[in-house]
Design a protein around this nucleic acid. Sequence first.
DNA 1: TAGCGTTATTGACAGATGCTCAACAACGCA
DNA 2: TGCGTTGTTGAGCATCTGTCAATAACGCTA
Lengths: 214, 214
Amino acid sequence: MVATPESVGAVTAPTSRMSADARRAQLIDIGWDLLQERPIHELALDEVAARAGISRTLLFHYFPTKADFYVAVVTAASDHLLRPPRVPDDAAPLERIRRLVEGFVRLVERNRASYTTLVRAAGGGDQRVVDLIASTRDALVPRWLDAAGDPDVGPLAHLVVRGWLVGMEETVLTWDPQQVPREALVDHLVASFLAELALATDPERLVEVADTRR
Amino acid sequence: MVATPESVGAVTAPTSRMSADARRAQLIDIGWDLLQERPIHELALDEVAARAGISRTLLFHYFPTKADFYVAVVTAASDHLLRPPRVPDDAAPLERIRRLVEGFVRLVERNRASYTTLVRAAGGGDQRVVDLIASTRDALVPRWLDAAGDPDVGPLAHLVVRGWLVGMEETVLTWDPQQVPREALVDHLVASFLAELALATDPERLVEVADTRR
DNA sequence: TAGCGTTATTGACAGATGCTCAACAACGCA
DNA sequence: TGCGTTGTTGAGCATCTGTCAATAACGCTA
């Protein structure tokens, strides 16, 4: 279980003997909280242990190395934040894409700090974390293609849709609602995705995309 | 001076007394080489000093903390790799954008490992590095807008062009020339940028973009 | 309830690393 | 030749990761 914003700073009760699973979960929870405040190399395991009210040795009992601990924390956060979105089958492609965009914007609105921490972890940390984020992104591509009604596209479309997703991530993360209205952002992202996909598969369809914008 | 792929592993001569500037450059050079192999938190300053043939103390003389050293290394690499591209004024917008895309693809082709190291540094390291990469990207946006002949656009266009640039970065970095021909990639990116910009400013122009693809 | 195996838990220790301090030595200049 | 500037270093301190052997709490069975 990963810390949600509500549980941040929750003081854990003075610890007696805990079950292995509960202890692991507690430590990961604390690790995630602390990782919001500072990057991994500035985080001492002493502090994690202290917050849990246990000795540092016990931490090493559950996670052989600091890197292992780090990977466990980021993996848990990834499971929590990047849960694959559900798209209703009955809606039209345009509507399904809009739902996906809406879902992501909402996710960032609710967990901006956590999400930033997570994607930044993709860079600095362990190779396993880099791979984790990369494979999570890879897994996202077919979902968006399915939603668009274009499941079977060539390698170029796969490649650029993946890039588009990363670009959208950056766009939404740097988005300032004061400068750009929420609806304008969502509208643009939907049209942008359709245009990108059309360009990579069937350029004639671009005209249709233009139509949806008038 | 940042290490180019050619200078990697160059053994520096046994050191006598060096000028401050030369020593700094040498240390940054070595730091960059080592940063290609492993992330910053796995890099011991002992090793940097050993490669330079000096004591660890001297390293601290030039860079007060390890973080300072890291920032200096990444900054130097950024200056070298992200040098602002030159665009000829005489060409048409379409051609100028193509030049920019070509330039970036070529940059990645020549320095894939270095570039990956650099953008990954944006995540793991110091806050100053995060800011550096962010401001470098910000500075890139007006250049692309100028090239497209649309210097004065609204905040939405700024935002999405910035996102598009990050997406393109990801696309080119994960691009596998075996699966997608170089020309197809470049063609797509050019059209994609124009479509993105058109969507954010003047949707009617999308039709023109479609024309350039037939 | 007593005994016993399992395992959660810990204190003490070792090795590595970031960083400080005071002193030395090479160089330029009057 | 002498002197100030500065490039350079070894020794030492504090912190942090990781190890090891021992302890104590718990569940299970007789």
